[in-house]
Design a protein around this nucleic acid. Structure first.
Lengths: 154, 154
DNA sequence: CTTGAACCTATAGTTACTGTAGCTCTTATG
DNA sequence: CATAAGAGCTACAGTAACTATAGGTTCAAG
């Protein structure tokens, strides 16, 4: 194992695009790998591992900066867990809120798919639900979201 | 009701930024409102309603294009529900996947917060979990996510 | 009637990619 | 060994969905 891998191979193995791998290198999310004599990047399994880590974290809504922090923590496993704990706590409330919203939406989506067979839009509850303030747990005033750009969920 | 509202008022009522309201107007998500003699926008309650709708949908991961579709459906409530149904179905699988991932992460976050009191990073399971392929339901190969840019959750 | 907050337009910056152009390198096949 | 397809390279532009800033105007309170 740890065989030499091209960028295409790592990207495929990690489930991301080739450009994304290069982009992550550019912004320092992954280390720059060695190159062949012809200037092509060569990776080993550890790159797949790290990219998979990043992808999972992105899919779960961590911004790249938080993932960067997590990576730097995992690179120094003997330091205190407090920082990781802080990141986790900051994420937990957000995760819970998202789960609540998504579960509410799922119910409405299912309801709608069930009911709307041949019906008219005025009977659809999705639109109503999305307009409805009662689903709003958070106060309208503090809507400036703390979590930057969650990714597309894979 | 339907009192005249400034852009600041609607933004506050709908839970978004003033710039965001202007941006939505610019890209046609909301209609351009009338102006005062001094060129300032004047809204009524319907703008708050629509903006709230948009915010909810965005928080739940709908891309603006899908919301645009939903809005155009709700503007024509007598047409067939089939299109809304299609949008809902397309969204449902995605919603379910996100819920699964988030619940898995929540467990790990809680576990970590519980365990890591004064511990070391090497005992933290978040990092391990995020690196772990077993959490991956989707095949690594089809990672190009179908849902564009979910927003920051409020 | 002044002052300061809120408004206006226009433009640039942000995050996290994704796509394109125009080239070079590698590899399979004749 | 030649060659052509396919993968890689750099550099830069574009996308989504905002967010911030600059520099000016309008409105409402004192």
């Amino acid at each position: 194992m740890s065989a030499d891998l091209t960028i295409g191979r790592v990207a495929e193995a990690a489930g991301c695009k080739v450009q994304t791998v290069r982009y992550y290198e550019q912004i320092g999310m992954i280390p720059a790998p060695p190159r062949t004599s012809g200037n092509q990047r060569i990776y080993d399994e550890s790159a797949v591992h790290r990219l998979t880590f990043i992808r999972h974290a992105r899919e779960l809504g961590f911004p790249l900066q938080a993932i960067r922090d997590l990576i730097s923590l995992s690179d120094h496993p003997d330091q205190s867990c407090a920082a990781a704990d802080g990141i986790a706590k900051a994420q937990l409330g957000e995760v819970n809120r998202r789960i609540q919203s998504l579960i509410a939406l799922r119910g409405e989506l299912e309801h709608m798919i069930e009911q709307c067979k041949g019906g008219k839009v005025k009977d659809c509850r999705v639109i109503e639900v999305l307009s409805d303030h009662s689903l709003c747990e958070t106060d309208a005033h503090d809507a400036a979201a703390p979590m930057a750009h969650p990714p597309s969920a894979g």
